[in-house]
Design a binder for these strands. Sequence first.
DNA 1: ATAGAACTATTCAAGCTGCAAATATAATGA
DNA 2: TCATTATATTTGCAGCTTGAATAGTTCTAT
Lengths: 147, 147
Amino acid sequence: MTSSFEGSLAEAEAQAIAERNLCGLVSALSRQIEGHVRERAAALDLTAPQATALRELTGPLTMRDLADRMGCEPSNATFVVDRLEEQGIVERRPHPTDRRAKQLVLTPEGVELRARLIEKLTEGSPMAGLTPQEQTTLQELLQRALH
Amino acid sequence: MTSSFEGSLAEAEAQAIAERNLCGLVSALSRQIEGHVRERAAALDLTAPQATALRELTGPLTMRDLADRMGCEPSNATFVVDRLEEQGIVERRPHPTDRRAKQLVLTPEGVELRARLIEKLTEGSPMAGLTPQEQTTLQELLQRALH
DNA sequence: ATAGAACTATTCAAGCTGCAAATATAATGA
DNA sequence: TCATTATATTTGCAGCTTGAATAGTTCTAT
């Protein structure tokens, strides 16, 4: 015999398992995406975080802007930009109106490297298995799940 | 005037942006999930990876099994289990049939801590904003996107 | 039986990440 | 104005992660 307490407990447990499956899938897919970036970036002698930063460097950005786009802490952006700057890919300039901030600008080498990176990242996407319709659905669901 | 080189570059850029939206959403959601785990685990003096490992330690596992479940390299599992063992949460025992392998077993403290962890992780899930129907759809899409 | 291939776990080096503290600058309000 | 508060960046620290190298063990095909 099953009490209503046990019934709802089993229900909650099943719900928890479903939840974990879903979170686990998101994490697994995220790892797969990062693996894809890592692989493509390695061909250009970049690490995955460096490639992510370079990808986001469309126009002049502050460190904070870059951190926001990368989804990481500003201190982390400092670390990654240090490496990119050592490689002559990006330059830290004083911000024209805010003396606290830096303005990140790609060097000519950086512009050229970024073009090659975008090309590499575009070919053979991790989402290739989904139709455009499915991609749209997935995008909507993910956006709703995000806060 | 626009050269064909610049034209295809802009095309690749547009394609990359669409891709990034989807991949970026997956990554952002994954970070949100990890943040949720980190927050709940901190209340039990555990880091997020330690909590993930403890969550997966249902029955006796080998290091390899745990690494697979955590979605990380075995060397990483070694690192995390070292910490859990130092805290008296898990024990490494010789595997009964394979002398290469270790058998991970929770201590009584580990069993108790794991129960509290599961409880904390279950309440207030990151996926709360989605209906069960939507969760099912999302799960199917994620599984299709994985490999 | 045994040599070679494959597997398990570990160590190490290098790099990534978040958090807290410190510094410098900007914005706000009495 | 001037004190307070908020923001931008950096530094130090502790912990995480991967990939290569290593040692011991098991498997497999002779």
